[in-house]
Amino acid sequence: MKGYIGIDVGSVSTNVVFMDEDGIVRDPIYLRTQGQPITAVQKGLRKLRESMPPGVKIRGVGTTGSGRSLAGIIVRADAIKNEITAHAVASSTLVPGVQTILEIGGQDSKIIILRSGVVSDFSMNNVCAAGTGSFLDQQAARLNIPIEEFGEIALKSKTPVGIAGRCAVFAESDMIHKQQMGCDLSDILAGLCEALVRNYLNNLGKGKEILSPVVFQGGVAANMGMVRAFEKALRLPIQVPTYYNVMGAVGAALLAREAVAKKGQSQFKGFLVSDTEYKAGSFECSGCANQCEVVEIAEGGIIIARWGDRCGKWGNVINQKEKIS
């Protein structure tokens, strides 16, 4: 068997998938990043190798997500692409004819509009993370319900309460207010879902034409309460694809396939990556008043990449013998 690996290093989760040559996804792995992207990537690759039959050949590797450059350097990826392109590629391949992609992840949310198979518009949330997975996580923890049951409880609601969803801080105080008034938990949760959907559609969907088929993906798509709130607000059926939580990784694998087809061969380092020691360090450059934070990655004590400098003084020149600071 031959295939491609896609790695999506997000703020909350790190996903690794293996996709065979016919584009069939196998072994999706969903891990928590837990603030350690390098370890998460290594763990993901180790798990992937264990779950695969022997004799599998890796034809290429792609990375995406906010940690894509870091992961790309560690595994020496063939394709390093932003998450918007990766999500769009994955959806349009797995759900042919898709016209709208709603994606809500741990700390960001985006909307992608496709027309005749091509991205025609997109938008990503700004600095504000209201209405993303982390906020739902936090609220579930406050109400002492496991996040996995959040959606189910919300679905039981008959009359969702009104909650101000403009800002996470206000939404929380509004929720507390409603809870102290004696509203039912399921009504509060369903109300929260509706508030977040409203916020999402106002912020990201502003001025965009949302047409069916609509696909909802990202970790939050597991929450049936959110799915129902979207259906109610848009009055359109919402599809949640099978691999909704690893779509970025699927996209990265597809992009790797494309890149390798163009280049001829992969530069993947192999699974030994998960056993090599990587260390990341950073220092503040004192070359000028910009004081850039330079990040460096070392493999077995030897620096393999640096970035973060505006002028390119550190990033361009890498002395192989240098030790990590």
Binding site: N82, E83, I84, V118, F122, M124, N126
Partner: peptide, 19 residues
């Protein structure tokens, strides 16, 4: 954030153009 948006935007523009 700026880099991701710019990258995605140029991908979109080039993708459109290629088609």
């Amino acid at each position: 954030g700026i880099v991701t948006r710019l990258e995605a935007f140029l991908d979109m523009v080039m993708w459109k153009k290629a088609i």
